[in-house]
């Protein structure tokens, strides 16, 4: 299963948010989508999830355009948005049942899946607690469990660790990497935190709406002539700023 983004352009009125963006995600890989704030990551996510309509270009899954079979895409896609989308006044289970029902899954069929996904996220014992009572890290785990409930092939996470402490960030990152290994899940993880990336990861660096690097984290280091990913990120996005001056 491959997902291809081909020559995407997107503008908010006169402001261009994405400019000729193309890349391909490989099955079972943990892909990092890097970019500073305002680089266009969230816009790209909104297009991938059909929250925004494509203006120009195409997104395909296994060669099939998402415009032709949008429902099929939604079934294959799990998403964790940057902003929490859990209903705080409902319990963990009620939130998950709601999501399952929106995917046409009966509550009877959803119950064992909820148990399995929450156990995998070490959240099984919190199933009947209201989301309002959970901390940020636990809410994120619930959101990941929810995104996997309908057994998608692709998991998109838009800066899922924003606002979390370093330990929780690392643990979530490891969880998702494990999912790639266990379920052959294709993951696109958007972030601007370099400690979440390892040199072997395929990396897409988005800056000012354009793809600056589409390679591996290792290649990013070589391109910036440094051995530190954070420094490489700064160098590559800073030099662009200076060029733009």
């Amino acid at each position: 299963m491959t997902i291809s983004v081909n020559n995407i352009h997107f503008s908010y009125g006169p402001r261009k948010a994405l400019n000729d963006v193309s890349f391909k995600l490989q099955t079972g890989g943990f892909h990092a989508l890097l970019g500073p704030n305002g680089a266009g990551k969230s816009t790209l996510f909104a297009l991938l999830t059909r929250l925004y309509q494509l203006q120009e270009g195409e997104i395909t899954i296994d060669g099939q355009s998402i415009k032709t079979k949008p429902a099929e895409l939604m079934q294959r896609l799990g998403v964790v948005f940057q902003q929490s989308t859990l209903d705080l006044d409902l319990t963990v289970k009620q939130n998950l049942l709601y999501h399952a029902s929106l995917h046409g899954i009966s509550s009877k069929a959803a119950a064992p899946r909820i148990e399995a996904e929450l156990s995998r996220m070490d959240m099984a014992e919190r199933v009947n607690e209201k989301v309002r009572g959970l901390n940020g890290g636990h809410r994120r785990r619930v959101e990941i469990a929810r995104a996997l409930l309908h057994k998608p092939d692709i998991l998109l996470l838009d800066e899922p660790t924003v606002g979390l402490d370093p330990q929780t960030r690392r643990s979530l990152n490891q969880h998702v990497r494990q999912l790639c290994e266990d379920d052959n899940l294709t993951v696109l993880w958007a972030t601007h935190l370099m400690e979440e990336i390892i040199p072997e990861d395929p990396v897409i660096l988005l800056h000012k709406g354009k793809i600056k690097v589409d390679s591996s984290a290792q290649a990013l280091l070589e391109m910036a002539a440094t051995d530190n990913l954070t420094e490489a990120f700064h160098l590559l996005t800073e030099s662009e700023k200076q060029e733009g001056k």
């Binding site: 999830t49 929250l51 949008p70 998403v79 948005f81 929490s84 859990l86 995917h103």
Partner: peptide, 18 residues
Amino acid sequence: EMGSMRVLLMSPLPRPYL
């Protein structure tokens, strides 16, 4: 505004039906 509308919009079922 809070973002939870996205959960509804991510359903594979037709939006008019939702």
